[in-house]
Design a protein around this nucleic acid. Sequence first.
DNA 1: ATGGAGACCTTTTTT
DNA 2: AGGTCTCCAT
Length: 773
Amino acid sequence: MSNFNSILQSLNDPQREAVQHIDGPLMVIAGAGSGKTRVLTHRVAYMLEQKINPYSILALTFTNKAAKEMKERVVQLVGDSLAKAVMMGTFHSVFYKIIRIEAEKLGFTRNVTVYDTDDSKSLIRNIVKEMDLDPKIYSASIILNRISSAKSNLLNHEDYAANPEILAMDGDSGRPFISDIFMRYNIRLKQSDAMDFDDLLYWMNVLLRDFPDVLYKYQQRFQYVLVDEYQDTNFAQYMIVKKLVAVYRNLCIVGDDAQSIYSFRGANIQNILNFKRDYPEAKIIKLEQNYRSTQNIVNAANAVIKNNKDQVYKEVWTDNDEGQKINLFQTNSDSDEAQLISNTIFEYKQNYHVSNDYFAVLYRTNAQSRAIEEALIKRNIAYVVYGGTSFYSRKEIKDVLAYFRLVINHYDEEALRRVINYPQRGIGATTVERLIVAANQNKVRIWDIVSNPQQYNLQVNKPTQERLQNFAIKIKSFSTQLTTVDAYELGLSIVKSVGIIQDLNQDKSDQDRKQNVEELLDSMKLFTEKEPESLFNEATGEIVEEYFPSLDQFLESIVLLTSEEEKKEDLTDKVKLMTIHSAKGLEFEYVFLAGLEENLFPSSLSLGSRQELEEERRLFYVGITRAKKLLTITHAATRYRFGSLQFCEPSRFLAEIPMRYINHTQKASMGKGLFYRSRGEMETQSRQSFGCPPINQIEKNKKIITERKMEAVGEPAQIDEIQVNMRVYHDKFGYGVVNQLVGDGADKKAIVLFDTVGSKTLMLKFAKLIIPK
DNA sequence: ATGGAGACCTTTTTT
DNA sequence: AGGTCTCCAT
C-alpha cells in the first residue's frame, strides 16, 4: 500500500521502534505529550500493512472517546474497510459484545441488560429497605463501592462472605450486613437478566476461567492485543488481558505511570510497574520527547512529579521554545477567580485574535464550574461544560430508555419499577409493594405477577388488576415488533402510545425535557440510517448479509456511552470547561487550572495516605501537561462550599513548582506566603494588566443579553415560513440564523446557528421559532 | 394515590 | 446552593 512509508516516516526513533515491534510483549512508557496515540494508531496501521488479519487484532481503551479517536485515525491511515474489521473499543463495550454472544453459558440471555450506576444504587436502596436496615448507615454509594471493588478484584458474594478480613472491616465500620446485601444484589441481578458495569469484566473472567473452549476461541481470534492507558487497568481487566494473550504473548501496552489517576476505581498502578515481571521477555520503550508543551511547562511538570515516590524513572524533555512562564494568581473569592479567568480569556481573544477553542478551564470537582460559567456568560464568551449530568442519565431519557429495556427484557426489574407508573396509570406504591411480596412468596419475578395477576392470586382490586394487565399487554405488543420495526419507528410508537410525549406536553415548564426526548428520537433516526459499524458477525467472523437496525441494537450501541460522544452540540469555537480527569488525553493552547487550594486540590478526602496524595499530585501533573503554550494557575482565599463560605490555604503543590518557571511580575506572592490583595486592588490590577474593557462595557453586554430576553414577542411561525438564512428567535436559545433545512412535512428540521449557544438542530413542529419583526 | 413542603445531603474522579 | 428524598396533608 502506498501509505507504507508515510506510516513510519512521521515518527521519531523510539516511536518507530515501538510501531515495528509486532511479535512478543511490548511496554511503551509514554510521557505526557510524547505521541502515545500516534504510536498506537500507527502501530495498528503498520500491522495491517504487514498483512496481519485485521480480525485478529484487539485494541482496548479506557474511554469511548479514546476508542473513537483511535478508530478515526486508523481509518485515515489505512482506509475504512481494513480498519473496521479491527476490534477497537473500551474494555466494557468489547466484553459486553462477547458476553452477549456467550450469555447462555453464564445463565444469562442474549438480551442481558446493563445496569448503570443509578440502576445499581436504586436496586441497593430497595434491598436495604427490604432488609429493614438503616439507609443512612447503609448508603447506596458506600455499599456499591464495596461491591464494586470486590468485583473488580474478582470476588463474588460467596468469596466476600468467606473472607474474614473483609467481614471484619465491614463490622468495624458498623455495616456487618454488606455481605448479605451483596448476595441479594447479585441474585436480583441474575433474576433480572442484568449485569452492572463491574459484572461485565467479572463475568468475562468467568467465561475465560470456566469454559476452555471459549478461552481457546478468543485466544485464537485475538492474536494481537493492544491496551491503551494500561496504568488504569484494575485486576479484572488485567486478568482478562493476561488470559487472552497467554498463548501468543503478542501484547502491546501503552501507558504512563505518572498519569495514573483512577485508583479510586480499582485501577492498580502495580499492573504497569510489574509488567516486566509478568512478561520477562518484554521489550520496553520509553517515549520521553514531549511535542506538546513549552519548556517552562514541561520543566514545571517534571519538578512536581519528582515529589512522588512510586514511579518508573524517565526524563521528559522538549525541543520546543522556552515559552512564557506560568502565571499564578490568587484572588479573594471563587467568583473573583472566575472573573479573572473570564477577563483573561476576553483579553487574549482581543489581543491575539485567537478563538475560544484555544482555551480550557480545568478544575478538580464539577461543582467548580458554576462560578466560571457565570463569569463567562457575563463576558459573552461561548463555552461548553463537559461531564456533569450526562445526556443518558437525565430523568426523562432514562424513563424512555427504561421502556426500551423492558420491551427487550421483561425481567429488567429496575426498568419495570421505573415505568410501571410513569406516566401515571394508577399503579401506585401500595400495588408495587404487593407485587414484590407476591413475587417473593411465589419465588417468581415481578414481571410474572404483572403479566398474570390472577394466577398468583395478587391481592388488588379489579381496576388495578386490569391496569396491570393492560400495561403488560402493551409492553408485550411492542416486543413482538422488535424484529420487524426499526429502532426509530418502534421507539417513536412507544413514546407516543405510552403517553410520555403527552405527559411532557402537559407541563409547559418541561420543554427542555421534551426537547431531550426529541433529541433522543433524532439520534435513533440517525442510527437507523447509518451504515452498520461492522458487517462482521462477531461470533463467527462471517460477513453479515442482512443488517437490521433494531431497538435492541440501538440500546446496545448507547448503554455504555456517557454524554460526550453522542452529543450533537457543536463543540467548535467554545471554551472548554471540564475536570482534570476528563481532560486526560486532551491538549489546549491556553489552560487555566482553577482552585489550587488545600482540601480542594489535593482533595481533603485524599490526605489519608501517601498513595492517595501521590495520586492527587499525578492529577496535578496531568493538569499542567494539558497546556501547549501557556498555563495559568489560580486559587482563591475564600470559596463557597456546601453553601457556606470557607477560607482556603494555597495548595501545597504550588510550592513544588520552582520559582524560575513562574511569572514574577504577575505573581501575587513572596516565597511561600502569598499575600492577599483587597478586592479593589485585585480589580484594578487585573483590569489594567490584562487590558480589559471598562466596567461599563460589561454592563452594556449584560444589557444586550437582557434585551434579547425581553424581545421574545410575536407569534410562532408556521413550519413553511421558515427559510434558509432567515433570522429567527427561539425561547431558550435566543437569536440565530437558519443554516439548513432538513426533511419535509411534520418532521422538518432546521439547523440554526444561534448567536450565543452555537448550532442546534430543531424539530420545527416543536421549536416554535419566531420571525422577528 | 398524588403533590407539596421541608429535611437532608452533597462534592472527587467514570465505565 | 441546589437537587433529592421523605413525610404529611389532601
